[in-house]
């Protein structure tokens, strides 16, 4: 394994990763929390809680660009599924740019960069999603809208099952009270994971991740001096996230099989193919 880096090296790594996160990830936790708690000058998010409010949101109140050129023309569950896909695809783009800024990532084989993103992006997305969530709903459309958890639960099966596990995870994850600087390192550690299937140079990936984890550990001690065991607690969340992704992949497979009306974005098709 790699030799221990010095405290100042780890500090500068933390800073670089944090800057990359703020530069590439559009919706930060800070921004989201300000909106959710009303600490912002802009108007509060438009609440989407039923068919009617969703329809209003689609007519320019929340989203300025409609999918497939029209407001909900399909069944509502299918429509929400498409909205989830759009957001996911956009976040995959952002995460790709973020990953490229993590020291060492672009020096990896291109093959391994592809593998790390294929397996890492959904875990990263589900780790960032709690920033936009509270127990009652989640921010959408760059904070212009707020979709209630109850509305998502009211969709017919299987669409009602998409977001509920993410809310359950989010409520527990948010109790750790991480900020964007913690999340930046945590998400980087998720991406640079040495046990993804098919990696060519496992050691090279592990070395980068080891540094990131050391930086995260040090950063948490400084940033959360009173939170005991926050680092090991966070490491445990890695296993929960993997479970969440596995279940999500199974649900997407189920939707693909049973809902002939739905289609999957080509980027997501790539990611899910032969995943687990």
């Amino acid at each position: 394994s790699s030799p221990n880096s010095s405290g100042s090296d780890l500090k500068s790594l933390a800073k670089r990763v944090n800057n990359a996160y703020l530069k590439n990830l559009n919706m930060t936790k800070k921004k989201a929390r300000n909106i959710l708690t009303g600490k912002t000058n802009s108007s509060p998010p438009f609440v989407i809680h039923d068919m009617d409010s969703l329809w209003q949101a689609e007519n320019g109140l929340v989203w300025n660009q409609v999918i497939n050129g029209a407001p909900p023309n399909k069944e509502i569950g299918v429509h929400v599924f498409y909205r989830c896909q759009c957001t996911t695809v956009e976040t995959v783009r952002e995460l790709t740019e973020f990953s490229k800024s993590i020291p060492g990532f672009v020096d990896l084989f291109l093959n391994d960069q592809v593998t790390l993103l294929k397996y890492g992006v959904h875990e990263a997305i589900f780790a960032m999603l709690p920033s936009l969530m509270n127990k009652d709903g989640l921010l959408v459309a760059n904070g212009r809208g707020f979709v209630t958890r109850e509305f998502l639960r009211s969709l017919r099966k299987p669409f009602s099952e998409i977001m509920e596990p993410k809310f359950e995870f989010a409520v527990k994850f948010n109790a750790l009270e991480l900020d964007d600087s913690d999340l930046a390192l945590f998400v980087a550690a998720i991406i640079l994971c040495g046990d993804r299937p098919g990696l060519m140079n496992v050691h090279q990936v592990e070395e980068i991740q080891d540094n990131i984890l050391q930086a995260l550990n040090q950063h948490l001690q400084l940033n959360h001096p009173d939170a005991s065991f926050i680092f090991p607690k966070l490491l445990q969340k890695l296993a929960d996230l993997r479970q969440l992704v596995t279940e999500n992949a199974q649900l997407v497979q189920k939707i693909k099989k049973t809902e002939s009306e739905t289609s999957l974005h080509p980027l997501l098709q790539e990611i899910y193919r032969d995943m687990y």
Binding site: N111, V114, E270
Partner: peptide
């Protein structure tokens, strides 16, 4: 290796060309 990149054309493109 080559086939992995072939199977992940969009990811590959995002990695190489950046956010366009």
């Amino acid at each position: 290796s080559h086939t992995l990149q072939e199977k992940h054309k969009i990811l590959h493109k995002l990695l190489q060309n950046g956010n366009t």
